[in-house]
Design a binder for these strands. Structure first.
Length: 228
DNA sequence: GCGACAG
DNA sequence: ATCTTGTCGC
């Protein structure tokens, strides 16, 4: 399993090496639909950090929810020392390792994972969601609460959207999921088209700004940090 | 050279 | 990401 993964994804020595690894992963990225026609289970991924922690720990969480009821079907968390610092544009190298550990122990696997971070709406088209998706070979969607690059402002009503543009090309969709709340920035992660990604996110929102799978993952990651 | 900058 | 209560608005 780990044998056919890019050689540098785990511990790049420096930014230049990380960039090269992203280029390798970008070459494997699939931006078209290649997932079940009917999504029965939705996954959520998130990582929380401990402020001023000398051990530099990260607390990752992966959850699987029943797509129709939002009922939790499985949860896995992993706490470990971050082996890579937070550098805008290279978040995957900091968070993916712990998320892989979660995936290994997740008893019920989702059809697609909603990731708290950018997908292709990234300087080199390889945000956290793409990174996780390519390494796992699983469909993923990037759902960010703020921008890394690009611009686009949707109308005020839930469901309103605007193309997320950057340097003359479309990299995602700025989506209003709740009135009077900042938009969400949805982009392709892996094996999902942008249109499908947006439809899935909207379908998991239900009146709240952040879709249920990510809210659940966020709660699980915080529990892991505050608990033991 | 000066900002901007997911989590 | 994290530090933090009440408060304004739909």
């Amino acid at each position: 399993m780990a044998s056919d993964l890019p050689p540098h994804w785990l511990h790049p020595r420096d930014i230049a090496e990380a960039r090269a690894a992203q280029a390798e992963m970008a070459a494997r990225l699939v931006a078209e639909d290649d997932l079940p026609a009917r999504i029965a289970r939705l996954g959520g991924a998130d990582v929380s950090n401990t402020r001023f922690d000398p051990a530099k720990r990260v607390h990752a969480a992966l959850v699987t929810l029943d797509a129709a009821s939002d009922a939790p079907l499985a949860t896995a968390t992993e706490t470990r020392r971050a082996d890579f610092p937070y550098v805008p544009g290279y978040l995957g190298f900091r968070e993916v390792p712990a998320l892989l550990a979660c995936w290994a122990r997740l008893t019920v696997r989702p059809d697609v994972i909603l990731v708290d971070g950018q997908g292709m709406a990234h300087p080199r088209g390889l945000g956290l969601a793409c990174h996780l998706g390519v390494v796992l070979g699983v469909p993923t969607i990037g759902v960010a609460k703020s921008l890394l690059v690009g611009e686009g402002t949707p109308g005020p009503e839930p469901g309103d959207m605007a193309p997320l543009m950057w340097k003359g090309h479309r990299i995602g969709t700025a989506l209003r999921t709740r009135r009077a709340a900042n938009p969400l920035y949805v982009s392709v992660g892996h094996r999902v088209s942008l249109a499908t990604a947006v439809a899935i996110v909207l379908g998991a929102t239900r009146g709240r700004r952040v879709p249920a799978p990510i809210r659940a993952a966020h709660a699980a990651a915080n529990a892991a940090r505050l608990g033991e």
